[in-house]
Design a protein around this nucleic acid. Structure first.
Lengths: 87, 87
DNA sequence: ATGATAGGCAAGCCGCCACTTGCCTATCAA
DNA sequence: TTGATAGGCAAGTGGCGGCTTGCCTATCAT
């Protein structure tokens, strides 16, 4: 999961899903292009979504020809607890 | 900072400093070798510490020929707040 | 003074990762 | 049914990151 968070484009995808959950691949692509002027290809974003899904940060639901992506922040909870100082 | 957390060896270094703060480079090397059987060279750990310092996760204090390294978890606080769901 | 200890600097190698490219399948509207 | 839309699969490429290698400086003990 740490490696999933290491890429700035993937973090922007999480930002986008945090702002508006349940977007499709094309929605994410166009909104990233709008906001951040990054012209990442559809395949690039798709692969990023695969990585985020493998990390458990994004889940998806398929409906017809659309596939909606949802943010899941529960893996981030454990992240904070790891290096807490005991003092 | 995310890239600093992406490497498993660097995360083990943070684990080590969380358990015993203020270690020198050689202490970290030997203890990592002990616990995790990873025979990373001194230079490798040194470069990892540089990365962690650049991310603001580790600070250091020099005293004589020793250089002590300290964990700083404050950058991790902001990490959690980023993708909280507002519902 | 000399060796041992603790660490730094810089160049080179290599594998992985992000991205592209090309083509394919599936669903929906006309 | 045909074209457009939404997405998937897989191979190839280039650059960056982790690590090594070699050599150097600084501090301390004897």
């Amino acid at each position: 999961m740490f490696k999933a968070l290491a890429d700035p484009t993937r973090r922007k995808i999480l930002d986008e899903l945090a702002e508006r959950d349940g977007q499709t691949l094309f929605e994410i692509c166009s909104r990233l292009a709008m906001k951040y002027q990054l012209q990442s290809s559809r395949q690039a974003i798709s692969q990023h979504l695969d990585t985020l899904a493998a990390a458990g940060l994004v889940s998806s639901r398929k409906d017809g020809r659309y596939k909606f992506h949802y943010l899941d922040t529960t893996p981030l909870q454990r992240l904070t607890e790891r290096w807490h100082k005991e003092n």
